[in-house]
Design a protein around this nucleic acid. Sequence first.
DNA 1: GCGGACTGCTTACCT
DNA 2: ACAGGTAAGCAGTCCGCG
Length: 896
Amino acid sequence: MAQRRLDEFSTPKARTKPQEEIKKEAETLPLTEAMKKEKNRGFPPLALENLSPSYFVSANYDGKAGKVLIKLYEPVSGRIYFWYDNTGHKPYCYTNLSQYELEKIDRLIKHPGFDHFEIEEKVDPLLDKPVKVTKIVAKDPLAIGGRPQGCIRDIVPEDFPKVSDMPVASESVKVWESKIKYYQSYIYDREILPGMIYEVKNGSLVPRRVEEAEKMVHQIIGMFKDTDCEELEHIEQWARLLEYPAPKFRYVAMDIEVQSPIPTRMPDPREAAHPVVCVSFYSSDGQKRVLLLKRSGAREGTEHLPADVKIELFDSEEKLLKAVFDVLWDYPFVVTFNGDDFDLRYLTHRAEGLGFRRDEVPIEVGKRVCLLKYGVHIDLYKFFFNRSIQIYAFNNRYRDVTLGDVGKALVGLDKIPLEKSIGDLSYTELAKYCFRDSEITYKLTSFEDELVLKLILALARISSMPMEDVSRQGVSRWIRNFMHREHRRRKMLIPNAEDILAVKGKTATKAIIKGKKYKGAIVVEPVPGVHFNVAVMDFPSLYPSIIKVWNLGYQSILCNHPECKTNRIPDTPHWVCRKKRALESLLIGSLRDLRVQWYKPKSKDKTLRAEIRSWYNIIQGALKVILNASYGVFGADSFDLYCPPVAEATAAIGRHTITQIIRKTEELGIQVLYGDTDSVFLKNPSKEQIRELEEWTERELKMGLDVDKVYRYAVFSSRKKNYLGVLEDGSVDVKGLTGKKRHIPVFIKKAFDRMKERLAMVKTPADFEAAKKDIIQTIRDCYMRLKRREWENMNELAFNVVLGEELERYTKTTPQHVKAARILKENGVELKAGDLISFVKVVNEPHVKPVEMATKNEVDVDKYIAYLHSTFDQVLDALGLDFDEIIGLTKLERFM
DNA sequence: GCGGACTGCTTACCT
DNA sequence: ACAGGTAAGCAGTCCGCG
C-alpha cells in the first residue's frame, strides 16, 4: 500500500493564496467593530510568512469568512495567530447513488448550500473492496447536516426512493461521513496535526522539522527494527507526534464572584441577574490581580493578601467587565474551573444586559461550551471530570470533582471556607476568597511542569483534535478521531455504525451480570488466610496486547474469507481474519508497544534530565489512558465503530489466556492464591519457577507476563476483589475492603486505618501474635466508645453517599441516602445528581437523618456496631479472629 | 399481621 | 456517555403461618 508519511504531507494540491490576500478578503468582509478597534493591535492577528515556529492548538469553522480558521500559538511572543484556509477545501459527504441519480433529486440540486458532485474511488472496509462513490460537495458545513431539517444528508435517503424509476428501499441508499465536524474533516484531509509545530511558507502551513526530535524518532525506529513494515510505519508516526517538544505556555487562570440575594443557590448564568462583584486573575507571566466592584456599605476588611497581588477597585460594573475582557482578548490560554457553564457564560450575558455590543465581548457562547474569540479556553472542571483522566492519569487521587477537593489532592491547596454570603464579605475577605480560587486553578495548570496542558497537547496530537475539544470530550472521541484520520489517509470509507452492526452482528456469549451484553473476565476464587511471600504477576495492558496479537478489529472479526473461518476465537463461535491487518489492531498495538517498550522505561530512567523524564512520564500517562479504554469502546454503543463481537472476542481471549497461565502455573508446582482478569497471585514461587513461567508465556502466548509486585504477605478472605497486601517496604495495598470505601463513617475508617498501620509492621509469621492483640484492643476500644456514645462530633458518624440521580427519579426504591436527601430538600437545601449526601443512622423512623440535623442521643448505636462488625470481618476471619468473641470478652469483663 | 427467603436497586469498588 | 464482575446494604415482595 503506497502511503505517504505524515511528515511529508501538507503541500496542498489546490491553488494557495498568501495570507495577505486572505487578509484583504477579510478586510472586505464585514469586520466587527471590536475587530476594527483592535486593528491597531493587528486583529485579526494573521499568520504571515515570517511567523516564527508556532503550535497548531485549535481549529474551528469561521462562519463569517466561510473558511476553516486555525489558531497557532507562537511561544516566544506568547501570542495567537490566525491562519485561514486558502485551499478552497469544502465540506462534503459521500453516497452510493450516482451523479445521474442524484440529479433527479430536486431538493438537493436546488439546495442553497449545494455546490457540486465529484466521483471518487474509495475502499469499503465492510466489503473489503474498492467502490465508486459520489462526493456531494457543499458550500457550507450546515448544508450537509446540523440543521434540524432540510440537510443534504437527510434529503438524499428521503427523496431518492420517491424520484427513482425503479422500486428502491430507502435503506439501500447510503450516505457516509456526513456527521463529521467540518474542521475535523479538514484536519484529516489536509493531514495537518493539532499540537504540532508549523510555519507559513508561500501561504501554506508547513510542518517545522525539529532535528533533536527526529533523532529520537530514528532511535525508536532502530529499537523496533524487527517489527513488520506496516507496524513500523505507525510506530514512526506515533513517535514523531510524541517526541516533538511542547512549548512553554502563556496562560491566565480566572475566577468570578457574583452577589446573589439567595446565598444557597448558584446564580443562573443565563439570566445573569446579579452583579459581578469580584474577578481574579493569576497568570503564568506574573499577573496576580483582583478586580473589585464598589458596593455601598461594604467594609474595607483586614485580611492580608500576598504583597504581589494587585487589588483594583471599580466604580462601575461596565468598567470592571471591560478590564476583564481586555485580559481575555490578550491571553492565548485562559483556564477556568467550570467556566463553560458559569464564569464565561455569566460574563457574556451580564455584558449583554449592560449594553455591551456582541463584538466587544471576547467570548463565543455555545450550547454546552464557551470558547474565546482570540485564545483557547480550557475548562479544568470538564477535564478533571473525565473518568479516564481521574482514574488513570491521576490514580484516583481526587474523589469529588470540586475545585477544593482536586486542589487539595493535587496541589495541596484548598478553597477558603465561607461562613457568610458573598454580599456580606468585606472587600479584603472577598478578594482573598476569590483570589484563592484563581490561585488553585492556576496551580492545577502549572503543577508538575504544566502537566495538564502538556497532557492535553499530547492527547490533541494523538487524536488530531483541537485542544479545546480534547479537554472536554471523552476517551471514546479521542480513539474515534485517530481511527477516522487513518480511514481518510487510506481512502477508506468511514463505515456507518448501523452497517457495522448489521454485517458483524451481536454477541454470542452470556454475561454473568443480568443486562450485560457478553461474558467478561475471570476472577479466581481466593484461598482464604494469611500468605507470606506472594508474587503478583500480570500482563501489562492485556487487552491491547490481545487486540494486537489476535488482529482484532471491526474489519477482521467474522471476515468473509472462507479460509479464515477456522481461525477461531476460543470460547466463542467467532473467527478472525488471517489475511489482512485490522486498523484497530495496528494502531492500538503500536501504541501499546511504544508505551511498554519506550515511554514507560524512559519515564523512570534516572540518567535522563528531569524535564525530559517528566515529558516521557506525561506521554506514558496519556497512552495509559487511551490503552485502558481501547477495549471497552468496542462494547459501547455510543462509540462510532461499535462492534460487540470485537469486545466479546477480546474478553474471551483474556479468559483463555489467564486460564492457560493458571494451568501452566499449577503444572510448575506453584499454588495460585488468587487472580483477576490479567493477574495471578503466586504463593512463594522460586526465581527459577518465575523465569520458566515468563518464558513459556512469551513462547506460547506471544505476550509478556511480568512480576508486578511482591507482597511480604497478603491477607485474603473468601471474597473476590477483596484483599490486603503488605509490600516489602511496609506500604499496604488495600483492595475492595469496606474499610477503604469512601462512604463509610470516619469513625469506623479510623479504626480500620489503625489496624492497617499495625499490620504494616508485621514482618514474620511470629509477629502476628502481638499484632493480633493490638488489633483486638483497637476493636474493643472502638466498640466501647460507640456503646458509651463517645465521639467527637456527629460528622464522624456520617455515611457519605453520592446522589446518583435527580431526587425525583428514585421511583423503584428509596435508599437511605435518598431519604436523607428528601429531608434536606424539605428544609430548603437544593440538591442535584452528583451531590454527596451525609447522613447518620438513628433509632426512630425513617432511621436516617442528615448529619447537621441529628443529635447524639438518637444515634442507633447497634447499627454502627453491626457496620463495624462487617467491616472488620473481611480481615478477621483470615487472622483466625472472631468479632463476637472480641466483643463478648469485653462484655464479660464489664460484668466481672 | 409478621418474619424469613427471595429479588431488585443502588453505590462503590476491581481489573 | 469505555467494558464486565463482585460486595454490601437496604427496599420491596411473596409466602406460610391454625
